[in-house]
Nucleic acid binder design. Sequence first.
DNA 1: GAAGGCATGTAAATCGTTACATGATTTA
DNA 2: TAAATCATGTAACGATTTACATGCCTTC
Lengths: 194, 194
Amino acid sequence: MYLPDMSTTLTPTARVILGMLRLGAQTGYDIKRAIDHSTRFFWSASYGQIYPELNRLEERGLVEGRPDPRGGVKRTSYTLTKAGEQALQGWLTDRESYTFELRDEGLLRFFFGDLLARDDVVANLRARQAFCDYVLEHFRSFEPDARTGFIEDTQRYPYLALEYGIEFMEWMRAWCERTADRIESGELPSAKPS
Amino acid sequence: MYLPDMSTTLTPTARVILGMLRLGAQTGYDIKRAIDHSTRFFWSASYGQIYPELNRLEERGLVEGRPDPRGGVKRTSYTLTKAGEQALQGWLTDRESYTFELRDEGLLRFFFGDLLARDDVVANLRARQAFCDYVLEHFRSFEPDARTGFIEDTQRYPYLALEYGIEFMEWMRAWCERTADRIESGELPSAKPS
DNA sequence: GAAGGCATGTAAATCGTTACATGATTTA
DNA sequence: TAAATCATGTAACGATTTACATGCCTTC
């Protein structure tokens, strides 16, 4: 029988939530905004996940919510409990679990390149390259915010993670360009003629 | 009202299925094996997805299944229909849709590095590095098969996609090493003391 | 007073993994 | 004859997105 240890195991969404609360986010809305400006590219979450998960975390005693009607708006602010702190630290130092999932449609199209004419493969690679440029633009627009942390200005690692993203996209872009050139020059063959 | 064009839109799993059938896979089992040896790292699918999806694709007239009891085993072999070919080509040349999703737990831990002692951040990076090594080992064991195509030996692009995977993991590994060194040397600060 | 941001949530649908179940053939 | 591989499938659960709904406050 399968026994997930629900007393210590954090769901995917719970991991970002606890972390973001610990970094200074207060409300579900805060958390969503922080995610969208930072971890979104490697760990996203929607409102439909965040609000129910906050309730579940409160039931489990990992967070504590208090009504916080600043400016008359109905709002709930959350803080980590002792147990929540421990769960977060436990996850952060857990070297067992290592989720790494990728879903890359451009790469799948490339994988099926033998089914396409050379020009179509090249066009796909150019589209992928444009995608990299688009993401890089985004990332670079985040740089000023990330330099001083997305939530509080004592944070250094969000900026380093952004640096990772930028360098990754630059690497990917370069790979696309190089490969498209190799295919166009005829160095790499194509089964189907153009 | 939301109107996905179900007559032309392929579900995520349908995309690999049609492609793998076109490359020469015959049964659901074939498709699963091909995925596990190739696209798994950027486009995976389980039996629980593949078999029901094959039935749906047959209902939609994109594939055709025939009982094929080679060796006495109950088995269904599938081929693409004209409509299936068209749907596949349509998707392969569609530059509109571009799924790119990443779920990277190591990177999320790194993002929260300000909550950890320097030694723990370094340990996380070393774990990530070990993960890269592990994947690289896998990839390199696939190289001989990929050189001649995973299903038929006229295919070149599966090998190029594997090359991409190897180069990507090498890049990631180098980034981990470099960053761990920068942190260990004290070049990058840590909020929490060790 | 309209638009946009703040704030919280639900319902439906989709997507996906995991465990379970079955049974045949092939190989050691 | 036992283990591995071939082969197909379902049920339960978990995760996630999207659309919808509401209403306040602030700025133009």
